[in-house]
Amino acid sequence: MLKNLTFKQRIWLGHAWRWLVAIILVGFAIFPVLWVVSASFNPSNSLATAKLIPDNVGLDNYRYLLNTPEFPFLTWLWNSIKIATITTVLSVSITVLAAYPFSRLRFKGRETMLKLILLIQVFPGLLAMIAMFTLVTQFGAIIPALGLDTHAGLIMVYLGGAMGVNIWLMKGFFDTIPRDIDESAMVDGATHWQIFTQLLLPLMRPILVVIGLLTFIGTYGDFILARILLKSTEQYPLMVGLFIFTSGEFSKKWGAFAAGALIGALPIMTIYLLLQDQIVGGLTQGAVKG
């Protein structure tokens, strides 16, 4: 049968089954998202919606979200963006500075340090949370601006993780830049700092953007640390705030949760879809370069 088809028909068939499979896969991928969209427009605030289009479509949940003083949604959103942005800028700066000597300088303990950094990353941090809580409490007793319930304290703890897998990604990218470039500058008497800032940093821009985005997204989505270190509702970032709607402390407000989740996910979704190719490049860098 298939052998009788013309070349064009075969191509068409090849596209058709791929599209068919794509419909099933896309259905799986966006099913929960559709359900969230539906729940966010459903004023009954419940889980029990089998219908995709609810009976009384309305913006009640969105209004509730923006107009309830006990749940300062916009403050949460702003907190999240603020915390994630500051963490990202500081963390990327720390990482790129630390990655430079790992790529360009040879020193004792270099390999050991690289391995150690990775091992620290795989330590299950759950119980270390107790120590971090104590640590931030004590910091707060000495410098109140860095204590519990402050964004600065939270950011400080996030920066503890800056020297992590990203060092490997960054070092990998440094390694791809030919050393001839540095060497010719060295002949002209340039210092490491000059080579770093004037030659390499501009070339590093793509990976800096990618690692920055990944750090931003990771911080934006963090829950546990923020939940432990922040106490008052106005200080919450979005993820901790949204969790209130689903926890038993108040009657569960699934509609508001869905609306908040959609608004909260939108910035990240946009970033991903717009910069898909760059992010893919960054993610695959460590694995498939060369």
Partner: peptide, 14 residues
Amino acid sequence: QSFLLIPYTIPSLI
């Protein structure tokens, strides 16, 4: 591909 990427773009907590 963009549609299939969507699960990755929403914070997993949500």
